[in-house]
Design a protein around this nucleic acid. Structure first.
Lengths: 366, 366
DNA sequence: CACAGCTTGGTAAACGATTACACCGCTCGG
DNA sequence: CCGAGCGGTGTAATCGTTTACCAAGCTGTG
């Protein structure tokens, strides 16, 4: 037991009086020194080798000694030291992951799926955020390598500038590119078939009678943006659709969706449909259309991409292209394991087919 | 150069033909063995001690030898082994973090802020997802301890069931509770003042003339839900407002927001305002109101909590309570460092005041 | 009965870095 | 001219585990 001073600190901009109070606090004092396997062995009256064999299941040990060791470990509250084990073993049972920006609502669902998949095989995730900056991405890759992760999963920030980091890592470690890939860097990759996804959207709005269509997406800086743009061009040509207005390329954000909507509204006439590069853009665009009293889907159809959590909650609910996170994550780990088993395996690129989720923004459900 | 077999695998539910192609792939073969400091020392013709002193800046070394060592390290592409260093040093320069569910849109922004703050002091984040399950949370805590993280940041899944995990960890390591806390466990905590936040919302809708108000939130399983409920009760009493309908307590999800809206709609009359326990609930509720042609804010005011990315994009844009992620994260690390410096420091509980963001769902901007 | 073969336990050498300690040679003051 | 002091370097111990190797004891068979 020790005292626990509880302070309610309020940030400056509120003029609420700060409250300070003290209560007793049942926190036990910290253990001075960690228990090592040597302590366990000593207490059980055996050598460290025997203790280790019992606790990490190496060779057979007589039941009597094994019991003594387990008992002693339990009594002392022994916990193995994964750092020492990793040093000896040469592997850490951990995997690094670098994400362009965790705040982007699509990535957390991938991270969650990857983390769960990894934990099924007893491995942990070291997560890093590249803050949308290739130089940060490189620094992160280096610290993860220093930490001896067994493998690395990278969602590259840029299709070109991420090359350096990827090359450097790949020379030392198994790496899988996830979701996005680097141009002409032909290492393993798993993600969704972006071009196919966009063509599903284009076919959908064409089937609903649209003749003219605009594309609002991000500058082709990362591969997703590139592939979605390509998919759009090919699909509209194939379907004989009219491309209305410029392709509006900015960034994958709601803010850009808003701005693009304003550009479209300023034009001579609206297209029959707007295909968006991702859901955030689409949601921003929907907001601006709403403000301008443009009715969706009556005046214009709108589609997104990713099927993030809020796509179904937008107004109107957003027709979009769903990425199967679980499948992508498990394929990613499968690939990583394959690469770890055999570094000379030919590189694989796995494009998973996404599916169209039709909602009210294309009037499919009314 | 080696061949790279590129396989486009399409998931079963699409009947698109699978494409398989092979291209050459400029991936250099992996380095067979890692370079150690011994190699560097050998090539530079000095002892490992000297090499170590040059590379990790221990004691002074003559400029000539230092240059030789650095040169040799550069030529060999030496990278230090953080695992070995951690074993010797007794600290890993890493911090663990356990989050109830990364998919929940509020947590990624906290994770991002924590990760950035940590990286400023050269530490890495080991992220774990508790999958909303206290037993998973306990397992994760144990693996993080085994990995010798220097400290742990926990957003507890439950105000009661997370106790076990927290007690166990706190006996070994500095721990900070973030955002939520465990009942009667008086360790360090930093988060937002939930009760104050809700009272800001209640005062706001009262000032706009609401006389009756409903509360839609989660069952008081975690402290946020508890404190927000308490804040609601106190604020409505203080303001002399009429509580309309039951308090609807389910979970922090859009689905529950929908369901609660239906319950409200089924009642005899709608309240003047609905205060929601978080933004997801509010967004779900808005969607259902929209479907039922209930106008917000004309027929009823709605507020949320958290100010997640999509609060501003909802229809109508959601009045909500903003949590200052950056401040919370930096306070959290500050507290963690303080605890690491002095385990006997009295426990601190830092409640940061949130602020009201008025948007159209309460008609404030029209 | 002797010895091969197996089981089981201990001893000690790794893993890769840091660092206490010893040592060497130089400088400088007495 | 000699010894103290000091700066720079190497040797070796250390962090906590795992595991190769060795030794001892036991079993069973020729």
């Amino acid at each position: 037991m020790r005292d626990c001073e509880c302070v309610n600190v309020l940030v400056p901009w509120r003029r609420t009086p700060a409250r300070t109070y003290t209560v007793s606090c049942p926190i036990t004092d910290e253990v001075s020194m960690a228990i090592t396997i040597k302590d366990v062995a000593g207490r059980a009256g055996v050598s460290v080798a025997t203790a280790s064999r019992v606790l990490s299941g190496g060779r057979r040990v007589s039941p009597e000694l094994a019991d003594r060791v387990r008992e002693s470990a339990r009594e002392l509250g022994y916990r193995h030291n994964a750092v020492a084990r990793a040093l000896r073993h040469g592997r850490t049972s951990s995997v690094g992951m670098i994400v362009p920006e965790i705040g982007n609502p699509f990535f957390p669902s991938l991270v969650e799926a990857v983390e769960r998949t990894l934990s099924e095989s007893g491995r942990d995730l070291l997560l890093c955020d590249a803050q949308q900056d290739p130089s940060v991405e490189l620094r992160r890759a280096r610290t993860l390598m220093a930490r001896q992760v067994d493998g690395l999963i990278v969602i590259p920030v840029s299709a070109s500038a991420s090359r350096t980091a990827l090359d450097e890592v790949a020379s030392q470690l198994p790496v899988i590119q996830l979701d996005r890939f680097v141009t002409d860097y032909l290492g393993d990759w798993v993600g969704v078939d972006d071009a196919l996804g966009i063509s599903l959207a284009v076919e959908h709005i064409a089937a609903l009678g649209s003749r003219s269509v605009a594309f609002v997406s991000a500058e082709p800086e990362c591969s997703s943006a590139q592939q979605r743009l390509r998919g759009f061009t090919e699909a509209t040509q194939r379907m004989g659709l009219l491309e209305s207005g410029d392709r509006l390329l900015g960034e994958f954000s709601a803010g850009w969706g808003r701005a693009a909507a304003q550009k479209l509204l300023a034009g001579p006439s609206l297209p029959d449909a707007v295909v968006c590069g991702n859901d955030e853009i689409a949601v921003g665009l929907l907001g601006e259309f709403r403000r301008a009293r443009v009715r969706v889907p009556d005046d214009v159809l709108v589609t997104g991409f990713d099927d993030i959590r809020f796509a179904a909650l937008a107004d109107p609910p957003l027709t979009t292209i769903r990425q199967p996170h679980e499948v992508i994550a498990s394929e990613c780990i499968r690939l990583l394991d394959a690469r770890m088993n055999d570094a000379d395996l030919p590189a694989q690129r796995i494009a998973i087919a996404p599916s169209l989720i039709a909602r009210e923004s294309t009037g499919s459900v009314s």
